[in-house]
Design a protein around this nucleic acid. Sequence first.
RNA 1: GCCCCGGUAGCUCAGUGGAUAGAGCGGCCCCCUCCUAAGGGGCAGGUCGAAGGUUCGAUUCCUUUCUGGGGCGCCA
Length: 569
Amino acid sequence: MSLEIKHHLNTLLVQALQQVAPNEPASLIVLERPKQAEHGDYACNVAMQLARSLKRKPRELAEALVAALPASDWLHSAEIAGPGFINLRLQAAARQNVVRSVLHQADRYGLSGQGQQQKVLVEFVSANPTGPLHVGHGRQAALGDTLCALLASQGYAVTREFYYNDAGAQIANLALSVQARARGLTPEAAEWPADGYRGDYISDIAQAYLAKQSVGNDKVATVIASGDTNDLEAIRCFAVASLRCEQDLDLQAFGVRFDNYYLESSLYSDGRVEAAVQALTAAGKTYESEGALWLRSTDYGDDKDRVMRKSEGGWTYFVPDVAYHITKWERGFQRAINIQGSDHHGTIARVRAGLMAVGRGIPAGYPDYVLHKMVTVMRSGEEVKISKRAGSYVTLRDLIDEVGRDATRFFLASRKADSEFVFDIDLAKSQSEDNPVYYVQYAHARICSVLQQAEDKGMALPVSLHTALTSDPSALDLSALQGPRESALLSRLGDYPEMLHDAAQDLAPHQLAFYLRELAGEFHAYYNAERVLVPEQDVRVARLGLLLAVRQVLRNGLALLGVSAPDKM
RNA sequence: GCCCCGGUAGCUCAGUGGAUAGAGCGGCCCCCUCCUAAGGGGCAGGUCGAAGGUUCGAUUCCUUUCUGGGGCGCCA
């Protein structure tokens, strides 16, 4: 139900409460949507909450509150039920109003300015450029992209950022692996580098390098291969550029776009790593021991102090991480959200400790984290572990190619981040007719079809009425929408803005996927129960208005998920 | 051993201090002379891992415990 209506009802109850119990705070009034339609549009439990402190029976208290409710055009009735619930029922007209709001606001329906354009940086995927993106990156991409869309819908100025760890030991390993392939070695050879990357893509890169090909795109500066198998640095540059381009293609195929790519290597060349270390040392938060430089991260809640500079001289990985997050803060992002696998959980405390210790006023909870669990891919009841291309894992591209982009995105975004994800390819693909994403898309296509039929039969909403809606929404008579299924649909449409707000607030994109499934379900039930193109004009017009509104909300929601809304299926 | 996250229907998952715990898949039974059956309706299926506690009320909060995953590097 719309927030406006909810606030209105809340105000009524607060006024009643002030009469009945003047000393009790208004914050006690909480309205919830009952699961059962018989329990009305909203329920309030305040009478039960207060019964003890006021030494009155809950039902008696509820009666007093109901008696004290001010009159309202929107409220149909207030009943006392069960142990002392106050069940509020709306006037049909109040419920019907949502159709006008949706049609009037169209693709802006559900948006909120609450974020006041506060800058938020969301970092996700952040894969090392050492191979194609795997399914876990896909989960991050789906969650991250949708979360960004949700935050933007609530008025935040969102920046999507991809951080490349292009400077560590894994990159050196990549270069050695490509070099080995270029020299004709195979992973079985004795000279093959220890822990070298074995996937077929390594051979592909080696072949391209030998053929003196060039790689690059609009985001990755072009690198021309020298073909020299002894020049490890040239191999490294070529391999990293190749894989960045490759990953970029994966992301394009998935429909995910980033605003910015941040290279770890730049933190070194810009002197930011040194600067961070100096700041920490100047703040007195470091000490030398056993030939290494340590951070007093225990001062900020970490389990133990952490090594920053290894005794062999190199920095540990979290030092550039701290330097990187300082740049987020310096770039004006007072809010930063990182989406990472839960295996990175252990690093959170030390990065935050480093940021607090650096003395720039960065708060304790910076950055926020959304941690997600692993994805297991199943086919024919067995876990799929090996991809030909990547060797040791299933790639995102494999999944998109086999299951389709829409279904992959919808699936990966539709689970709570912190639950283990079992991605059943058979379910997502072979029984494609029962795929949840098609279920939602089908609702959209069905509505398009009905609207087309209406037009063909000359039964469409009169153009004058349709255009009138944008300037004068009250021109649409919706009073015919009285049935229980129509009420359910109207309520569900009205829930959309609050659902979006909550999903953004909780950093929980899966709530959007579930909402859309429920909305589609209520539409399908309605479609089977009632005909839209009936002879009675008032009924027909009202139902067409309802369908237009449902279609609009499906479109808006699917757009946030990055899933298409087809007109025909 | 310590820390984090899960444990809800046969399977995959939602939900949550409230009134008979939900959905999809799978199983069984119905519904196309009717705007797309990629749909709908119904049946079967649950001690919400277990035990205590707080509460008018607990699947939800607290404690303990069992179990699965992850983390506890001078790896990233």
